[in-house]
Nucleic acid binder design. Structure first.
Length: 388
DNA sequence: TTTCATT
């Protein structure tokens, strides 16, 4: 099934649809804020259910780092700085690395965050695992020690009985080693298994043994044998897609009326020269023109769109701002303003978002939102330094 | 029929 956030992002991209899906954003958010981030994926941390009891290697051994985290399922456009900003809101970070394709430089959708204090690492797992950012639900877990032996341990499994559950799939494969992730692909409409799945083992040798033991074998009770092989590497697909894009006719990349595109392009260039604005524009294009005559653009701070959030509770923290605004689009930074002495929130904070469209939807949706017993006021930050 | 991109 299509998630709420996928619908929302589709709405954001399709400007003709306006803001009528905002209530769905709120509905999705209500669930998240009331339940807190939840994500019960098979973990590579100590909580995995898939350990082989007879395995000589205990999970969560003493040499495992208690400060280094792996973060998976990050939005494609999220930068290392944004990753640092998000996880830095929990505690002091020793180092932070977004993994990128060596050739294209594109994010591979995961990264590592190493905290100074193990308690902050634990807190990050508890508060940020399962956080929704744009169309993604991020996964936060302890990183395994870096090693060549854990690479290329991902298996593609096909021909599975349609009735087989993820748990049964794990049971079948767990005899060969420690499972890091498992998934069964389902039909988007019916939700029925497509008979295809993935198993990521802790180590490549375990994956090799599973291929030897299970490829072309019938699972218990099955009528047909399954196929087990190493999965394709997704980064290869990205490179191929990028290469094929180079050969596409340029005008195929820009749907819609040509005149409209050209006009927007000119406006973008003007704004880019004046303010370093890079993103796609729609309603603000008009304001952008007037701003060239010296009129302030509300909320625009050079690196993104700054949003003012008022009426936060004294115990509000950065994570609540990430949870509220993250689903609407690219958030580069959040800040809760605190009293210097008490360290309590002074009732307001700021959120920076990269794209105007996404910021506008977030504001339209969250202004007037009831958080606990308070009604929030959300707007573009205004420049009040020049008041008479 | 290759995922919600695990060094």
């Amino acid at each position: 099934t299509v998630s709420f956030m996928q619908k929302i992002n589709a709405a954001i991209l399709n400007k003709r649809k306006g803001f009528h899906l905002c209530h769905q954003v709120i509905a999705a958010m209500e669930t998240q804020l009331s339940n807190g981030p939840t994500c019960n994926n098979t973990s590579n941390g100590p909580s995995t259910i898939s350990n082989n009891c007879s395995s000589p290697v205990e999970s969560g051994s003493i040499e495992d780092s208690k400060t280094n985290l792996i973060v998976n399922y990050l939005p494609q456009n999220m930068t290392q700085e944004e990753l640092k900003s998000l996880f830095g809101s929990i505690g002091e970070i020793e180092s932070c690395k977004l993994v990128r394709d060596k050739i294209t430089g594109q994010s591979l959708g995961y990264g590592f965050v190493n905290y100074v204090d193990p308690k902050d690492a634990e807190k990050a797992i508890n508060t940020l695992n399962g956080l929704r950012l744009q169309t993604k639900t991020i996964k936060v877990s302890y990183a395994r020690p870096s090693s060549a032996s854990i690479r290329d341990a991902n298996l593609y499994v096909s021909g599975l009985p349609k009735t087989m559950t993820q748990k049964e799939l794990e049971q079948l494969f767990s005899q060969y080693g420690r499972i890091i992730t498992s998934r069964i692909l389902v039909d988007q409409v019916t939700g029925v298994s497509r008979g295809v799945g993935f198993i990521r083992f802790d180590r490549r040798v375990e994956a090799e043994e599973a291929i030897k033991g299970l490829n072309c074998q019938k699972p218990p009770g099955a009528t047909e044998p399954i196929t087990v092989k190493f999965a394709n590497n997704p980064s290869q697909k990205t490179s191929q897609a990028l290469l094929s894009q180079l050969y596409q006719s340029p005008n195929r990349r820009y749907p819609g009326p040509l005149a409209q595109q050209a006009q927007r392009f000119r406006l973008d260039n003007l704004l880019n020269m004046a303010y370093g604005v890079k993103s796609r524009f729609s309603p603000m294009a008009i304001d952008g023109v007037t701003s060239l005559a010296g009129i302030n653009i509300p909320g625009h701070a050079g690196t993104g769109w700054c949003i003012f959030v008022y009426n936060l509770a004294p115990d509000a923290d950065e994570s609540i701002l990430w949870q509220m605004f993250g689903p609407f689009g690219a958030v580069t930074n959040v800040k809760v303003i605190r009293d210097f002495n008490t360290n309590k929130c002074k009732g307001f904070g700021f959120v920076t978002m990269t794209n105007y469209d996404e910021a506008a939807v977030a504001i339209a949706s969250l202004n007037g939102y009831r958080l606990g017993d308070r009604v929030l006021q959300v707007s573009f930050k205004t420049n009040k330094t020049h008041k008479a």
